[in-house]
Amino acid sequence: MRPVPKDKRVRSQAFSSAQRAAVYRAIETRRDVRDQFLPEPLPEDLVRRLLEAAHRAPSVGFMQPWNFIVIRDPAMRAGAHRAFLRANEEAAELFTGERQALYRSLKLEGILKAPLSICITCDPERAGSVVLGRTHNPRMDVYSTVCAVQNLWLAARAEGVGVGWVSIFHDADIRSLLGIPERIEIVAWLCLGYVDELYSEPELAVKGWRQRLPLEELVYADRWGNQE
C-alpha cells in the first residue's frame, strides 16, 4: 500500500476545552422539532454549509451513497403533507385508549410549517456491486447515509436551525412525488427552519410518551448481558 504523503495528513490532537464543550452541547441539546418552526427562509449559504456537513459523514468503503433532494416548492411540500396525513391516521389506529389520545395530540411533523425540506436517499449501487466493508453486511450503505443525517442535524443545531425527521408515510407516495427511482432507498425526510426555542428535553419525554433509558442499563462488559 502506498504511504499517505505527510502533506495529506492532519495532526491528531484533542480540541480545546471550549471546542469540546461546543461539540458536546450540540449533541446534548439536539432536538427533533415538530411544530416550532418559524416561516423565515434559510439563507442559501447556510443550507450549503449543512449539506457540506452531511457530505463529510463517514461512509463504509468511502462509497458516499447519499443524495439530497432540497424541497422548497410549497406544492411539493403539500403533497408530502397529504402522504403524511394518510399514514398518520393509519398509525393512530394502531394505538388504543389513552395511548391513542396522546398520539393524536402530538404534533408529529412540520412539513407545511418549516420553510425547507430535504429528502436524503441512499444509492446502493454508488460504488459498484462489491464495496469494501459492505461485503458481509449489505446494509452498511444505509447506515452510512444515516451518519449523513446526523452530521446535518448537529451542524443545524450549531447554526440555530431546527430539524424534524418525518418517517410516517408510505414509501411509494414519496417516491412518486419526488420521482425517485426504485433502486434508490428513501432514508429521511427532514424539515428545517429557524425556531424560537427548543425543549430542554426531547419532546416525547416532556409530553409523557417515553423517557430516556439509563445508560447503565445499556452498557455490557465483554459479553451480552454482563452489566458493567
Rank of each mutant, 00 (worst) to 15 (best):
L177A: 11
K207H: 15
L132Y: 05
H81P: 07
G110N: 01
P43I: 06
I111C: 01
F169A: 08
P3T: 08
A221K: 11
P115N: 10
E28W: 14
S176T: 11
G128P: 07
E109Q: 15
I118S: 00
A14N: 10
L38G: 13
E89A: 11
R49C: 05
L51A: 05
M76T: 14
I71P: 00
N67K: 02
R223M: 03
L215Q: 11
A18T: 14
R30L: 06
F84L: 13
W189F: 15
E44V: 10
P39G: 11
M1T: 14
R82V: 12
S200T: 08
I180R: 00
S117F: 01
L94A: 14
E52M: 14
V70R: 07
R2S: 14
D35N: 13
G208K: 15
D7M: 09
L192K: 04
K207T: 15
R11H: 12
H81A: 08
A92N: 00
I27E: 09
K113D: 12
G128D: 06
R2D: 12
P43V: 10
Q36H: 09
R126Q: 15
D173L: 02
L132C: 06
R139N: 11
K6V: 12
V10N: 03
P138I: 01
A156E: 01
R126N: 13
L154G: 06
P214S: 09
M63C: 15
A91M: 14
L198C: 05
V163G: 05
I118H: 00
A114P: 13
F62M: 11
W189D: 03
L38Y: 13
A14K: 10
F169E: 02
L106C: 10
Y194W: 01
E203P: 09
E216Q: 10
A172Q: 10
M140H: 06
D173Q: 02
R48I: 06
L178K: 05
A54Q: 03
G208M: 15
R212Q: 05
T29Y: 06
E159T: 02
C191A: 14
R175M: 01
E44R: 15
R82G: 02
R34D: 09
E197Q: 15
L198Y: 06
A87P: 05
A127V: 11
E90L: 14
V4F: 00
H81I: 03
P138W: 06
D123Y: 03
A221M: 13
E197P: 04
R20H: 13
C147I: 11
G162H: 04
L85E: 12
K8H: 04
Y103D: 01
S117N: 09
A57P: 01
N226Q: 10
P214W: 10
W153G: 01
Y143I: 08
S105P: 11
D45N: 12
G208W: 12
L198G: 01
E28T: 13
L116P: 04
I71W: 03
I111W: 03
R210H: 10
K8A: 04
A18N: 13
C119D: 02
L154T: 07
G128I: 08
W209L: 04
A75P: 06
R99H: 09
E159V: 01
V149E: 08
A83Y: 06
L178G: 02
L46F: 13
D171I: 14
S167M: 09
S117R: 01
P138D: 04
R126A: 15
R157Q: 02
F15G: 05
Y24L: 15
D35G: 14
Y199N: 07
L190H: 08
A57C: 03
L116V: 00
H55F: 08
K113Q: 13
